[in-house]
């Protein structure tokens, strides 16, 4: 499905504050992944540019974002990443949005706009066990 949804639209629809990446709000959002457990994120996301919806406050969330080439982060339930996380994200060119909505509500907004779940491709050894 082809949708036209930008990060700035996501920010508006979820009434999110933009904490970093103000200059990248024009990025298109087509896929999203919602999880608090980082290994789940690492298992689910395969394409570049996916939006991560999370309540995880671990500094590692940004490293995961880098490793996966995520398009942006949407923190839910009013969880505010600290200053050093924001500095890191800014250096890495990662947009961070923060909404008071719950994970469920934020996902509902994205889903109703036509955003699809991150598509997991086959890994080299999916049939390993």
């Amino acid at each position: 499905m082809n949708i036209d949804l930008k990060l700035e639209d996501v920010a508006r629809l979820t009434e999110a504050q933009v904490l970093t990446g103000e200059d990248q709000l024009g990025r298109q959002v087509t896929q999203a992944c919602a999880a608090d457990l980082l290994s789940d994120v690492l298992a689910l996301v395969q394409d570049e540019g996916v939006l991560l919806v999370t309540g995880s406050m671990a500094p590692q969330v940004l490293r995961v974002a880098e490793v996966l080439g995520l398009g942006g982060l949407l923190f839910v339930r009013g969880k505010r990443p600290n200053q050093s996380m924001c500095d890191y994200a800014r250096d890495a060119g990662l947009p961070i949005l923060m909404t008071d909505l719950s994970m469920f509500e934020a996902c509902g907004v994205l889903y109703s706009e036509g955003v699809s779940g991150a598509q997991r491709k086959r890994f080299p050894r999916d049939n390993v066990r």
């Binding site: 457990l37 290994s39 789940d40 298992a43 969330v61 050894r125 390993v128």
Partner: peptide
Amino acid sequence: EMGFGAGMGIPNMERQSD
């Protein structure tokens, strides 16, 4: 609480490597 403990780390390592 930090977002670890899915028990997916080693399975991820296996799937993503040759």
